[in-house]
Design a protein around this nucleic acid. Structure first.
Lengths: 132, 132
DNA sequence: GCCCATAGGGATAAATTTATCCCTATCTGA
DNA sequence: TCAGATAGGGATAAATTTATCCCTATGGGC
């Protein structure tokens, strides 16, 4: 496992929530699990852009942070189901609000994100003329 | 500037919001700016854990994504003030909810985050005994 | 037997983000 | 004149996160 070299900030709520939510697919995972998509393979199908590996890694982190629990059914082929803990559920309003804001502002977001790619073409006329 | 090699996902609201909010200090910046802390040097003092450089970089990204605007006062020494755009303001409920959740769950969060460091000491008794 | 599905993790490369260091400019105050 | 404040960016190293590839195991279907 990777060993952190820079200490974690814990000064305020924003620092803390970042620690558990920062990760490319964590919010998606919480969302889908809350919607009843609980098995790893189902989650993977739901988020095909992510690799199986990252999903496993991030599911483990969410579990470690007690936002989800893992139930392993002792059968073959193996069956596993993740569920939100009460703690994880308490985070749902945040997840939902994020998703809603993203949905509501799709157009705007796609436009400003697109700008990133065009960045290199930009005129770059950063003249400021302070000294005259 | 860094040139992206992997395309950006734009499949759902969560993908989109991630693009503009993913960054170690972006949410903090939005929060402080909304609280009237608008000048770069003030923001830096407010977030001493961050380096001046990252704050500049992330402020630029927020600006590019039209969440904030930058007003440059043509004077010396230079004076700059950032403000939320209406779009940025529409994101405040999300920022606030995140901060509140983090604050409300401080104890729990600090505990589970602490576990990360102790990870290496964990027993690791991952016996599953399916086949019997 | 071979392929697919289930679940998961190690090792390592690649991508991306942050951190460090250094430089430009000008005004104010000691 | 030197130190410090203001604001900002380039170059490069380091840290961290994701992506790739490969392996283990077992049961079912053809």
């Amino acid at each position: 496992m990777y060993e952190r070299k820079i200490p974690i900030d814990q000064n305020c709520g924003l620092d803390l929530i970042r620690e558990v939510l920062y990760g490319k697919w964590k919010i998606h995972l919480l969302y889908y699990i809350s919607r009843g998509i609980q098995r790893p393979s189902e989650l993977q199908r739901e988020i095909p852009e992510a690799t199986r590996r990252v999903l496993n890694v991030q599911l483990n982190q969410l579990e470690q942070h007690e936002l989800i629990t893992k139930k392993i059914y002792p059968q073959l082929p193996p069956k596993v189901e993740y569920s939100l803990t009460p703690f994880g559920e308490s985070l749902l309003p945040v997840v939902m609000l994020m998703g809603k804001w993203g949905d509501d502002n799709q157009e705007h977001l796609k436009r400003v994100i697109l700008k990133d790619s065009l960045e290199s073409v930009k005129p770059q006329a950063k003249v400021r003329s302070i000294s005259r």
